[in-house]
Amino acid sequence: MSEEERTDDEGGVIKKFMYVNRRAPYGTVYALESLEVVLIGAAFDQDVSMVFIDDGVFEIKKGQDTAEIGMKNFSPTYRALEMYDVEKLYVSQESLAERGLTEDDLLVDVEVMPDSRIADLMDEQDVIFTF
């Protein structure tokens, strides 16, 4: 946790918010509803980052096709994150490798890093949402 409190131009507090996405996009509603938190949260002008780890890496996999499971393919929304100034997207190198994926399989620009680096980043956060 950062000890010094940062503030914006109007004196509002800016905290380091990290959203940790650990689950596959379908099968449960966690991924969809956590994305809703990120989008609403963007209006609060905090210092936001997102982590994709474990099956969470599938949330941003290219070529998702949900036609046969009758669910909405919400993966295009991840591409819109940039417009919400959510630009720090970190992906676990180990989680990608375990699933036979590479950075080229992902539909947004990310920074791939080892879990140890993600752990360091977690240490720096003020607020961590895990989904």
């Binding site: 507090v13 905290k15 918010f17 809703e36 938190v37 609403i40 949260g41 209006a43 609060f44 905090q46 003020d126 607020v127 961590i128 949402f129 895990t130």
Partner: peptide, 20 residues
């Protein structure tokens, strides 16, 4: 109420503790 209440809680509290 809306999700803004969750974000606001994250900003205004000293510890946000998540259960799940």
């Amino acid at each position: 109420s809306g999700l803004g209440q969750l974000i606001e809680a994250g900003i205004q509290s000293e510890r946000l503790v998540v259960f799940g």
